[in-house]
Write a protein that binds this DNA or RNA. Structure first.
Lengths: 196, 196
DNA sequence: GCCGAAACCGACCGACCGTGCTATTCTCCC
DNA sequence: GGGAGAATAGCACGGTCGGTCGGTTTCGGC
């Protein structure tokens, strides 16, 4: 990897960390450059525009999410165990990501849900993929006989994500220590309903 | 109401609308003033600081939410009907609020969940009140015999809010027309589980 | 070890930010 | 209807923003 490419990676990585604290739009080139001991122009030379950097950052976040949540879950046995692990890793990622900030994608959802453009497009695609991933995992559980035939897979994914979302607010904003317990309890109910 | 107070109200109102599009932090005094045909300094004279304005805007949003969601629900008969209406008004408010933007409080959650200060404090309090309101409504349903005795009221509120949150993302960001149907379906399941 | 290319820097641009200060205009009560 | 005080405008400030440009340093292949 050339020097330039390496620096580029470091920039994206640092920008992702900063974006977890102040939002993607809130990352300014000056602050980002200073935190990397780089001049603003030196940093900027790696990207055609700030938006190009933002897209790289988002893509990096998507890659990380897949690597940390989806891939390890897919290594689990097909069916309910895989669905369970998907939820576990999701919860863990949600909490650990962004050093105290909330789930990166949730923050972006509210930052870009009414701001059209390539960033929103990429975000939408990634979230659709995520819902699909959950639904596909649920389908394996149906195929394995863990979940009942005729289960509405998209509805399952919908409620799956809902639990993760409220977990974030209750854990991060409201700082309620019971948040995880409640999330797991809700998820167990969702699983139970999906079985019989 | 004096002229000054009237202008102040108009400023807060307009700022609230703008904040629904660009976030609370994203509302700049210059743009806000221009959209009201006011000079920036003329506008600023009504508030000690930008933060004071932001707090007023948030307080206004809280008042609106109570007026549009909580108060009308409390006019419903105690028990399940009241809980149902609380959800209905919540969904409607979520969708209609901010002219295409998502629920104001959800956006603020991710804007301020790692930014301490009076705004975050007020937001936290308002959200805790909201969860309490749901839990209290659920308790009336227990008292009326609609919900089973021993129902975990806070868990009920948790899952209630979770459904509302995922609804927002699916409806607003993913623009899925089935979002509301799925939300209502999930809510019916929650009610069913709370009864028997 | 040289040399072209890649990487990086410092200075700078115009625009906009929040916030004061002072002057002018408007409102409303006597 | 005039005068006091509130409401608003004008202007300037120090800063930061994304972005540009020309020059300097560093890297990597020969």
């Amino acid at each position: 990897m050339s020097k330039g490419e390496q620096t580029r990676q470091e920039i994206v990585e640092r920008a992702l960390a900063l974006a977890g604290e102040v939002g993607l739009e809130g990352v300014s080139l000056g602050v980002l450059a200073a935190s990397l001991n780089l001049s603003k122009s030196g940093l900027f030379a790696h990207f055609r525009s700030k938006e190009a950097l933002q897209i790289d950052v988002l893509q990096r976040a998507i890659d990380n999410f897949i690597q940390d949540v989806v891939v390890p879950a897919l290594r689990q046995p097909r069916g309910e165990p895989r669905v369970r692990k998907l939820f576990d890793f999701y919860l863990a990622w949600t909490y650990g990501n962004g050093r105290g900030g909330s789930c990166f994608f949730m923050a972006l959802t509210h930052e870009y849900d009414d701001r059209p453009g390539p960033i929103r497009d990429l975000l939408v695609q990634s979230q659709r993929d995520w819902y699909d991933t959950i639904a596909r995992a649920a389908r394996t559980a149906v195929e394995e006989g863990h979940f009942r035939a005729g289960l509405d897979l998209d509805q399952f994914a919908y409620e799956f994500v809902g639990i993760g979302m409220v977990y974030q607010q209750v854990a991060k904003l409201l700082e309620n220590p019971q948040a995880e317990e409640r999330a797991r309890s809700a998820f167990e109910m969702l699983l139970a309903r999906s079985r019989s």
